[in-house]
Computed example of a mutant assay.
Amino acid sequence: MTPRISRENGLLVIESGRLILREQSPAAAAVLAEAGSAGIDWLDGAPGSGTQIAAKMVTMTVEAGAFLPGWGLFVIHRSADDVALGGIGYHGPPADGSVEIGYDLTESARGSGWATDAVLAISHWSLSLPPVNTVLATTDPGNEPSQRVLARAGFSRVADRDALWAYELTAEPAGPR
């Protein structure tokens, strides 16, 4: 399924099947970085630790003067009720045709395919952009749930990056299950 792309208040929105990915402004990211809700209704009351870390990465990028809109943090929302389930986003803008993604779900959202759907949506969007021909993701060797997400999304294991297992997707994914 091809994601539907729009903008809300100038921020990118990616809609795909049962989820919506909403780009977070630097101001919202600063709130999320401190475990605040940023005015978002979270499934478990607050963003997960991975989403908080990603939000901190956005604020550090802003402080360094290197932030590029569209290449930061997105909150994963259920389409049915707009409740936030986690975060997904980029570790930075594309470099040499490649972009790295990371994702996190709140505890209650895990195990229901939300991460796979979010990875498919952001990967499909990323690979439709001219500067991107590869989407990269890394996991800790023991993070089997994340590795299964990447396999379901069509990623292939490639050479490790430091102590992390690396996965790449170089063609547009088929779409959510």
Rank of each mutant, 00 (worst) to 15 (best):
Y90P: 13
S146R: 04
P69K: 08
F67S: 01
R110E: 11
A115K: 03
A55I: 00
L120T: 11
M57S: 13
W71S: 12
E107C: 06
Q52S: 06
N143R: 01
N133Q: 04
A30P: 01
A55N: 01
G92L: 03
E144R: 02
I40H: 09
I40S: 09
S112Y: 10
F67R: 00
R157M: 09
R157S: 11
F67N: 00
S108K: 08
L127P: 05
E34Y: 00
I53R: 12
A115R: 07
G65Q: 03
H91S: 10
G97V: 09
V58C: 03
D160V: 03
P47G: 13
V58H: 01
D41R: 10
G111Q: 07
E63Q: 13
G113M: 09
P131G: 12
D160T: 08
T61E: 13
K56S: 10
G142P: 00
E34V: 00
H124P: 05
T106V: 15
G89C: 13
P145T: 00
A54W: 06
H91R: 15
Y103E: 14
Y103P: 14
A151T: 12
H124K: 09
P145Q: 02
F74K: 05
D44Y: 11
S112I: 06
A153Q: 12
V132T: 04
M57I: 05
G97A: 11
T116L: 06
W71Y: 15
T138A: 12
K56R: 15
M57P: 07
I122S: 10
T134Q: 08
V83F: 14
Q52H: 01
V149N: 05
G89K: 11
T61Q: 13
L32T: 04
E100P: 12
H77A: 09
D104S: 15
W71V: 14
D96G: 04
F74Y: 15
I76S: 07
A80T: 15
G92M: 04
A118D: 04
D96I: 02
M60P: 01
I76L: 09
A30C: 06
A54I: 03
G72H: 01
V83T: 15
S126I: 03
M57E: 14
F67Q: 00
S112P: 02
F67T: 00
L68I: 14
L73R: 05
T116I: 02
G36Q: 05
G92W: 04
A30G: 14
L120S: 09
L105R: 07
A118H: 07
A121N: 09
F74S: 09
Q52V: 03
A151F: 08
A115S: 06
L129S: 09
R148T: 03
I88R: 10
F74P: 05
L127F: 07
A159R: 12
N143D: 10
D117A: 15
E34Q: 12
A54H: 13
A153I: 12
A29H: 01
M57L: 14
L129M: 14
P47A: 15
V31A: 11
R157K: 13
S156W: 12
Q147D: 03
Y90M: 08
R148H: 08
G48L: 04
A84H: 05
I122Y: 11
Q52K: 04
E34I: 00
G72L: 03
R161E: 13
A33M: 01
S128P: 02
V75W: 02
N133P: 00
V83P: 11
G113L: 10
P141C: 06
D117V: 13
D44R: 07
E107F: 05
A115C: 10
R152N: 14
T59P: 00
G50R: 04
P145H: 02
G97P: 07
V149Y: 07
G45S: 13
